[in-house]
């Protein structure tokens, strides 16, 4: 009984919205005071098909800059995370605190100042500019995840490879990075979600030249075309889930192949 109540709350809070979105996407004419739509139609899907090109362009653009952001944060954080996990130096706690601030302070506060710099260096309205600003705002999640990953892994594997004559770079790339994959994926998923769902920063720095899925969705949200908005929102929900599942399965497969333990 107690558990049933917990489930009821979870369903009302988190599942009901999705059910309603599915209904809205299939019933464009669902209006007050009907609790259940009177008739269903595929008009929303027809709209989707008609604007296929624009939607696919913005979706692939969003996917591209989000994945590039994940990659950028990984490159930024890999070495520093290993230094942080394995060394003690003066001011470490302060430095760590400072390095986490970009995820805490409102991103507008540095993005709008940077906008000026990006215009000067022709980075505004470019993919590179968008990736840089998103990486700057989301890297702390990758950083924390990698530091934890290095700490869990310990130094044994690296020392062993070094003794066998591996260079520091190949220790990191060939020995430690594969072992760190779970941490990379954990941090990367958060970075991906942050980048994929951000509207304002992409709008500010991308200035319309860099298409984004959020930018396509925004004008629809307050329009009468609620069906299409609901369909796009559902894509926002299921695309990352599918992506995460694929990555998860691929990781398990690779680990099995190498005879490693999947945690």
């Amino acid at each position: 009984m107690k558990h049933a109540l917990t489930f009821l709350v979870l369903v009302l809070l988190f599942v009901l919205p999705v059910v309603v979105l599915v209904l809205v996407s299939l019933a464009p004419e669902w209006r007050f005071p009907d609790v259940w739509p009177e008739n269903f139609s595929f008009r929303g899907l027809t709209y989707l098909a008609r604007h296929k090109k624009q939607i696919l362009t913005s979706l692939s653009s969003s996917l591209l800059f989000s994945l590039l952001t994940v990659l950028t944060t990984l490159v930024m954080c890999l070495f520093p995370a290993s230094v942080f996990a394995r060394n003690q130096f003066p001011g470490k706690a302060l430095l760590e605190g400072l390095l986490l601030t970009p995820a805490l302070v409102p991103p507008m506060t540095f993005a709008m100042g940077l906008h000026f710099l990006f215009i000067k260096f022709s980075l505004a309205d470019t993919l590179v500019g968008v990736v840089l600003i998103l990486a700057m705002f989301s890297y702390p999640y990758m950083f924390r995840s990698l530091v934890a990953g290095f700490q869990v892994m310990g130094e044994g594997y690296g020392i062993c490879a070094k003794n066998l004559g591996a260079s520091p770079l190949s220790v990191l790339l060939q020995v430690e990075l594969p072992l760190l994959m779970p941490a990379v994926i954990a941090g990367g998923s958060v970075v991906f979600l942050v980048a994929f769902s951000e509207y304002f920063l992409v709008f500010l720095i991308g200035g319309g030249s860099v298409a984004s899925f959020t930018g396509t969705l925004i004008p629809l949200l307050n329009s009468s075309n609620r069906s299409l908005a609901a369909i796009l929102t559902l894509i926002f929900l299921f695309l990352p889930i599918v992506l995460f599942l694929i990555i998860d399965m691929a990781l398990v497969r690779v680990y099995r192949k190498k005879g490693m333990v999947v945690s």
Binding site: F14, V15, V18, Y199, T214, A230, T233, F236, L237, P240
Partner: peptide
């Protein structure tokens, strides 16, 4: 679910 949804979609909900 709401963790995956963007803020603008949650606003839409």
């Amino acid at each position: 679910i709401p963790l995956i949804l963007p803020h603008i979609s949650v606003a839409f909900v």
